[in-house]
Amino acid sequence: MTDDAAAFAACVGAPAVFVAMPDEAQPFLDAADARSASPQLVGGADVHALELDGRPVLLVRTGIGLVNAASALGTVLELFEPSVVVSAGSAGGLRADVNVGDLVVGTRFRYTDADATAFGYAPGQVPGMPASYAASETLMAAASTLIAAEGHALWRGEMLSGGSFVTAENVGATRETFPGALSTDMETTALAQVCHARGREFLALRSISDLCGPAADQQFHLEIDTVAAISAAAVRQLLRGLPREH
């Protein structure tokens, strides 16, 4: 067995961390005690086998978007049977009091642009599916000790995902429809839906890189590598707190 084959074999049943972009993957690659020499192409995604803080971890870079995320996760579940799935990286700040650099721990997940309300479904609900997807209670408990980066806040609550960017021009309608939502991105809820369908434990830990509708006195943007490091540090702390069977 080659070194890479052994590294990927060790990741069967290990936690899997999903990110969309190279900058979001880099903090995990930099922190790894060991890593596969080359990624595998799995479900259209680049998959790295890591040893991170003394345990095997699968790092999956899906590319941007709901379909990319769901496609990658479906194949990763078949090939590696991860014990838990974590969505990491950056997000847009949605609620008015959220600021760049803050960390969001997702408790529930909904789609911004799923709308079957004419047929009696809740905003963000896909017909035949739950109105929202809940984070794993086990992973939420493990995340209870997380703290924010210095100078920033930690939030726990609802996260949104969709196929369209939420901008200053349309953020008002999104806030009106989802008044409690903290953040928005383009992958997390798709990952949550697949995990719900497959009975897998799921959590999202994302840091705010930009504000969808900033107030006049708010900094509205941080570089992706800065917020990716905040998210990655939180994910590493979470994984260190999980028992080895996870």
Rank of each mutant, 00 (worst) to 15 (best):
G89W: 08
V57K: 00
H48R: 04
L52Q: 00
H48T: 02
E78C: 12
G65Q: 04
H48I: 02
V76Y: 13
S90H: 07
Q40A: 15
V42R: 06
L52R: 00
V67A: 05
L59S: 00
F28I: 11
S90Q: 10
L58D: 08
T75M: 14
A88M: 10
A45M: 06
A49W: 01
T75Y: 09
A49N: 00
G74E: 12
E81W: 09
Q40W: 08
A31W: 06
G74M: 15
P39D: 04
G54M: 01
G44E: 04
H48A: 01
Q40T: 10
G65V: 03
I64Q: 06
A31G: 10
G54Q: 02
L66I: 13
L58R: 04
V85C: 15
A88C: 11
A70Y: 05
N68Q: 13
S83R: 10
V85G: 09
A37V: 06
A69W: 03
L58F: 02
S71Q: 12
F80V: 13
R61S: 04
S71H: 08
V67N: 03
L58S: 07
V85A: 12
A37Q: 11
E78S: 15
L41K: 11
G43A: 05
A45P: 05
A31E: 12
E81G: 10
V85W: 11
A32N: 08
L52S: 00
V42N: 06
L73M: 09
V85S: 11
V86R: 08
S36P: 08
A72R: 14
T75C: 12
A88I: 12
S90K: 08
L58W: 00
L50S: 01
V42A: 09
A88Q: 10
V42K: 04
R61C: 03
A34S: 13
G44R: 03
G63F: 01
G54S: 03
L59H: 00
A34M: 04
F28H: 12
V57G: 02
D46N: 14
V86I: 15
L66C: 09
D46E: 14
L59P: 00
L52V: 00
V86T: 06
S87E: 10
R61Y: 02
G43N: 08
L77G: 11
A31M: 08
G65F: 04
D46M: 06
V67Y: 01
L79T: 13
V42W: 07
G63D: 03
V86L: 12
G74H: 14
S36E: 06
V57E: 02
S71Y: 14
T75F: 07
V86A: 10
T62P: 03
D30L: 14
D46H: 11
V60S: 00
V47N: 03
G43S: 08
V60I: 01
S38V: 07
L29Q: 09
T62K: 05
G74V: 09
V67E: 01
V57T: 10
P82T: 08
D53E: 08
A32L: 05
P82M: 09
